[in-house]
């Protein structure tokens, strides 16, 4: 395969991102079942296929893969929002909140934005990944942390470090993601 040829996964990714950018939530070939799926099915993909199964193969490398995947989605979402935000952080976050609600990722609420310190904290209530998951020993929403990191990175054009400091699955009632601008 030549280096310029896109893989099938990349082709599918492009179609999915294009659909999100266009705000298309209806899906062809799903006339009867519609565009929504049970949250538990998403969680199977996230926590089993991209979680424990990947962990079986990659061990401690699994969180990095999941974080990197989330960052890719965050950058895609960020590109949608940044075009409509006129370089205004409040408008940008507003667009992100709206998109995350539309996609049922979660209810994004800014907890702290301290640009002089280079720190942002975003809460994700009703997080799609860990809702209904309990008793884990450490935050497990690496995908969402990567996604928020990708979103912030896209706006500021700087590398970031995003870490989940609270997690519903640990018992915190919400997920809190701290982003440090590097």
């Amino acid at each position: 395969m030549s280096q310029n040829t896109r893989t099938d996964y990349q082709i599918a990714q492009q179609q999915i991102f294009d659909s999100i950018i266009a705000g298309e939530f209806g899906i062809e070939n799903r006339e009867d079942l519609g565009p929504m799926v049970p949250i538990r099915l998403f969680q199977v993909l996230r926590m089993v296929a991209m979680g424990s199964n990947v962990e079986d193969m990659l061990g401690n490398g699994a969180p990095a893969l999941v974080y990197h995947s989330g960052q890719g989605l965050g950058q895609a979402i960020g590109h949608i929002a940044v075009e409509k935000a006129n370089n205004d952080i409040e408008t940008y976050v507003g667009k992100i909140e709206q998109l995350c609600r539309q996609l049922s990722i979660g209810l994004v609420v800014p907890e702290k934005v301290d640009l002089s310190a280079g720190v942002l904290e975003l809460r994700v209530d009703e997080c799609v990944s860990c809702a209904g998951v309990h008793d884990v020993s450490a935050p497990i929403c690496h995908f969402e942390a990567g996604m928020v990191g990708g979103i912030v990175k896209t706006f500021f054009g700087r590398n970031v470090r995003a870490t989940e400091t609270k997690c519903n699955a640990v018992g915190d009632k919400t997920c809190l993601i701290r982003v440090d601008l590097l």
Partner: peptide
């Protein structure tokens, strides 16, 4: 991409 690849490759090798 480099950072993620490093962790993934080392994780797979460790397994």
């Amino acid at each position: 991409a480099l950072g993620a690849s490093v962790q993934i490759v080392f994780g797979a090798a460790s397994k």
